[in-house]
Structures are given as structure tokens and as C-alpha cells.
């Protein structure tokens, strides 16, 4: 659908959230807990944190939980009963207060989970998810969404985008049918568009490179020593993958309790040594340099090639979370500036 513009006041925005909560809907929003801001299910509008740049973890768990039960089984003698994933039990969920880069992170996940074989479990959670994002009026050093084709007011991936416009007002953009359905339930809270350009209210993030250039560069430097240099300080902790909105690599493990149990899908990371280790002891990605190269190539070359989407929304979480201070944007900048003779 074509995006529709409206205005909504701060107080009506609060009322919209309160109305969702009062109607018993599951709402997930940024909540401050200890020193972190995390997406959590809220019961009251007052729990929502709004003075943060970015949550520590992305919102991907709403469609791709950290651990989820794919099926359950029960053994009785030699017989096994297998119970399918309970599709009907996936609740409708409203993600409130995500950033455009959180919403943009769902495009790579949608691509991976629908590459030929459709992952019905992921798709069910996704279908049940309505995303109400808030444009960024601030950013920090790790942010690089504009270099990834996004931006602080980018609408892609959101169902509704709210841009704070000062003086207690906000620009509300209705982007998808899901956003429209939400709007239609609470039309009285919205007013006619002000006609103001939202750009003036957004933070400015310089675009440093573009994804097509990165793709060409990382492919040209596949055999370069740069991967070893950049990953020398990487300890393979996998934090970058866990905080990333676009990382979808997973493990499948059984969880057994006596005669019954579950088959689980769990987040995994290409940064782990065990990730590709064969039973024989052979490991195709045996060094951290190869694992770092896989991480960068997968996001910026293989995914664009195979499923036509870049595996990064420029949220910068990996750089904020890295205990060894590896900054993805900085590393990409180094590669962008490399010349052929320095391979």
C-alpha cells in the first residue's frame, strides 16, 4: 500500500499504547533494566524507555526466539509420538518503540527463512507481529544505517513509523496493511497530517560507503591478509551474532526429559570454532580469520548474491557489544580503502 501520513500528539500516542495494553494485546517495548535497555513484554505504558539510542539486543527474538521448540516427542516402548509446533498458539504481538534499523533487520531474516523452503514457524511469528517504530532523533558512534541503505527515518520493515516532531506532536506514517489495521482501530487518536518534512526532525548520520561497493571490495579481497589482521583480537565469543538483528544462524539440539522431550532451535554463531567442526576433527573454517571472513562475506556478498538482501541494517550493535572492540563499520572502511597491491 501507499504510505499514509497523519499527526498524533504525545498524549494520544500514550493512549494508543494504553489502549493496546488494555485490550489485552501482547506488547513488547524497550524497557530499562539495570544498565541495559532491552525489548520486553510490558504491562503498563509507563515501563517504556524512550531516552536510549539503541537497545542492547535486537527485536529479532520476536520472530526467531533465542531458543524455541520445533517439535515435541514422547516415547512409549518402541513407538514415538511426534507433536507438531503449535502454530495456533503464537500470539499476536505488537513491537512498540523499535528503531528503523530494528525493523530493517527483519528483511534479511525474511530472506533466509524463505529461501526456497518456507519456514512456517518463523513466518507464523512474523505474520503475528506488528511493528511500530520510532524514528531516531539521536545516534551514537556505532550507528551506520545510512551506509546500509537505511536511515534514521527509514520506513522499510515497519508497519507504522512515528517521528517525534516537537511541541508534543508526532508524524505518524501508516506503511503496511498491518499498520493500517491498527490505525483503523484507533482512528480517533490521529489527526490530519501537518505537511511537515520529517527529515528536519531526524538525526544526521553520514553515509560512509555503499553496499554495492562493499560487495565488490570484500569479494576482491577474499584471499587478503586483512581478515587475519582484523580478527587477531577476536576471541570467538559470538556476542556480535547474538545482538545482531540480521544473524539467523542456528543449531538444532534435542532436550530430553525421561521418555519425552523437545527438538530445539537455538541461536548460534559463525564465530564459534565448533560451528563447522566435523566429527572427524576436520574444520573447514579452522581459524578465526576464516570465521570473521565468513561473517563479513555472508552479510555483504553471499546474501546479496543468493537472496538479494544485505545481511546488515547498520544498527551498530555488534560494535557496541564486542568485548575486543572490533568495530564492523571501521573494519569495512579499512577494506573500502584497500588497494589491490596491499593484498
Amino acid at each position: 500500500m501507499q504510505t499514509e501520513n497523519y499527526t498524533i500528539t504525545d498524549s494520544n500516542l500514550q493512549q494508543l499504547l494504553q489502549a493496546l495494553l488494555s485490550s489485552g494485546q501482547k506488547v513488547v517495548a524497550p524497557v530499562r533494566a539495570n544498565n541495559k535497555v532491552l525489548f520486553k513484554e510490558i504491562k503498563s505504558a509507563s515501563e517504556v524507555c524512550s531516552d536510549h539510542v539503541q537497545t542492547t539486543l535486537s527485536a529479532k527474538h520476536l520472530a526467531f526466539p533465542r531458543t524455541e521448540v520445533l517439535l515435541q516427542y514422547k516415547k512409549t516402548g518402541k513407538e514415538v509420538t511426534i507433536n507438531d509446533f503449535p502454530f495456533d498458539a503464537v500470539p499476536q504481538t505488537f513491537l512498540w518503540g523499535s528503531r528503523p534499523c530494528d525493523a530493517g533487520g527483519f528483511a534479511p531474516l525474511d530472506g533466509i527463512f524463505n529461501w526456497d523452503s518456507k519456514d512456517a514457524i518463523y513466518n507464523k511469528r512474523r505474520e503475528q507481529l506488528t511493528i511500530i517504530s520510532f524514528s531516531c532523533t539521536r545516534h551514537d558512534d556505532a550507528c551506520f544505517c545510512t551506509s546500509m541503505g537505511g536511515g534514521p527515518g527509514n520506513t522499510a520493515g515497519s508497519d507504522m513509523l512515528i517521528t517525534p516532531a516537537g511541541n508534543g506532536t508526532n508524524i505518524a506514517e501508516i506503511i503496511t496493511d498491518k499498520g493500517k489495521a491498527l490505525f483503523e482501530n484507533y482512528t480517533s487518536l490521529f489527526e490530519e497530517a501537518m505537511g511537515a518534512d520529517k527529515e528536519q526532525y531526524l538525526t544526521k548520520i553520514d553515509k560512509v560507503f555503499d553496499t554495492a561497493e562493499i560487495k565488490a571490495k570484500v569479494e576482491a579481497f577474499f584471499e587478503s591478509k586483512v581478515w587475519k589482521e582484523q580478527s587477531a583480537r577476536c576471541m570467538g565469543c559470538g556476542a556480535c551474532a547474538y545482538v545482531c538483528p540480521a544473524c539467523a544462524c542456528f543449531d538444532i539440539q534435542d532436550d530430553k526429559h525421561g521418555s519425552k522431550g523437545s527438538r530445539l532451535r537455538c541461536w548460534d554463531s559463525c564465530g564459534f570454532q565448533l560451528f563447522t567442526l566435523h566429527t572427524s576433527g576436520h574444520n573447514p573454517r579452522e581459524t578465526q580469520a576464516r570465521r570473521w571472513r565468513q561473517r563479513v562475506m555472508h552479510k555483504f556478498s553471499y546474501m546479496p548474491d543468493r537472496i538479494n538482501v544485505v545481511g546488515c541494517s547498520g544498527c551498530g550493535r555488534c560494535s557496541r557489544a564486542c568485548p575486543a572492540d572490533m568495530n564492523l563499520a571501521e573494519h569495512l572502511e579499512v577494506i573500502m580503502k584497500m588497494e589491490a597491491e596491499k593484498i
Binding site: F250, I252, D268, P284, Y302
Partner: peptide, 24 residues
């Protein structure tokens, strides 16, 4: 070829050799 796999259909992220997926 064989490589470690979990899913078998191009999602779990293990078996690719460059952009080529052993599973697909």
C-alpha cells in the same frame, strides 16, 4: 561433498563454501 549441517535447506549457515551451499 559433505560439510557439517543442521537444517539441510540453506538456513542454519554452516555448510557453505564461499557462496555455494553444499545443502542446496
Amino acid at each position: 561433498l559433505e560439510n557439517r549441517m543442521k537444517c539441510g535447506f540453506g538456513k542454519c549457515g554452516r555448510c557453505n563454501v564461499g557462496k555455494v551451499y553444499v545443502c542446496k
